[in-house]
Design a protein around this nucleic acid. Structure first.
Lengths: 206, 206
DNA sequence: GGTTTCCCCGAACTTTCGTTCTATTGACGG
DNA sequence: CCGTCAATAGAACGAAAGTTCGGGGAAACC
């Protein structure tokens, strides 16, 4: 098991040094650098090329999310673990979109942090179960979707793939007029006007 | 801390009884019913109304996923934990779409199972870190998206919301012809033919 | 200065989408 | 037996989506 090289970006000296101390105590980890601001990290990280980065979100000046957005493209093999006190909805998704792969709360016990960093480095995405639920929710159909018949769900599936009416008709071995009829019924049930709105309603718009 | 009422759906008697035994041994859990097939579970679960259900995927006859799809609408307060040996890509998303909220591998150590069930019941979504990564990936922009210009990304954003060309034109204060042009360019860059395909390519098809 | 890239616009055109109306069939439950 | 619902289908139509021409201006880069 090779040693994982970690960098820490965190403005509170106490936390920064605490985590650093913990990691250097822990078998299999070494803290190669720490930064008190996103500005410092933006310069330092591309040089250090750590395996994983612990990134605070609420930094003075540039935010941790913005920092990930800037640095990640130059460090495709480095994994970013967001580290925050808030379990903020918006920020979770924004951070993931920026290129982070893990999301830890600061209240996480220290041993658990080390374990999560290892998982992150091994290709996992450790995050608190409550944050995971937010992600999961975007995959679950809305109550409205439940009222669709089996046939309608099958056709919605085709819609989601971007198939043309003609292609759906062939696939389901029915006429294109029937496809039209089914889709019309689907739109009515979901109270939408077109394909994109329907898919957003069913699978969560993004 | 109230007791969590659990039902188990699993065709292998050994595993079924093993987990049942474990839970009844564990403080805070009680196993209220077990089923060896989806057919039995479909009838029994709505009666028992357990807090959480451990659902095997590979059942003889009707699959566990199909079973969740059928039963979940009648049990909105019951949480489903999928339970499987495979870490199959397709099945993960399908199960989540069907209404499951957690996803555990059978190799998970027994104490960890109990902990995960509790997290599930408390509104979390426990799952292995590697499965979480698959979810996270769907929120991260694809390489293809990187080549789009700022203006194009802005318009793609509108496409994702299901706006009409006219609405996009108004929002961006440009003519509808320019919108057409931009979108045409976007489709070319992404090598797709229509809105739905483009969105699938950018945000991960589902 | 020339080239490239992005953004902008018009216009005519084809294709696909979505609506509406009507109608038949089979399955299912009271 | 009768009403309801899901699935099937045709046909005609307007609305929206996408294609393909043409062109112009502004900033960035050799």
């Amino acid at each position: 098991m090779e040693t994982i090289r970690v960098s820490i970006v965190e403005d509170t000296a106490e936390i920064r040094e605490g985590v650093q101390f913990l990691l250097n105590q822990t078998e299999g980890f070494v803290c190669v650098s720490t930064y008190g601001s996103a500005e410092e990290a933006t310069i330092g990280l591309p040089v250090q090329k750590p395996d994983v980065v612990i990134m605070d979100i609420n930094l003075p000046g540039i935010s941790g999310i913005e920092c990930v957005r800037k640095v990640k493209p130059h460090l495709p093999h480095t994994q970013f673990m967001m580290f925050t006190i808030y379990e903020d909805n918006e920020q979770v998704f924004e951070a993931l979109a920026a290129g982070a792969s893990g999301y830890l709360l600061k209240k996480t016990p220290l041993p658990k942090i080390a374990e999560s960093l290892r998982e992150l480095h091994e290709g996992g995405s450790p995050m608190s179960a409550s944050i995971a639920r937010k992600l999961v929710a975007t995959f679950q159909p809305t109550p409205a979707g439940q009222t669709l018949t089996a046939r309608e769900r099958e056709i919605v599936d085709c819609l989601a793939k971007g198939l043309l009416y003609k292609e759906i008709a062939d696939k389901a071995s029915i006429s294109i007029n029937t496809v039209r009829q089914h889709i019309h019924n689907i739109y009515e049930k979901l109270h939408v006007q077109n394909r994109t709105e329907a898919l957003n309603k069913l699978y969560g718009g993004r």
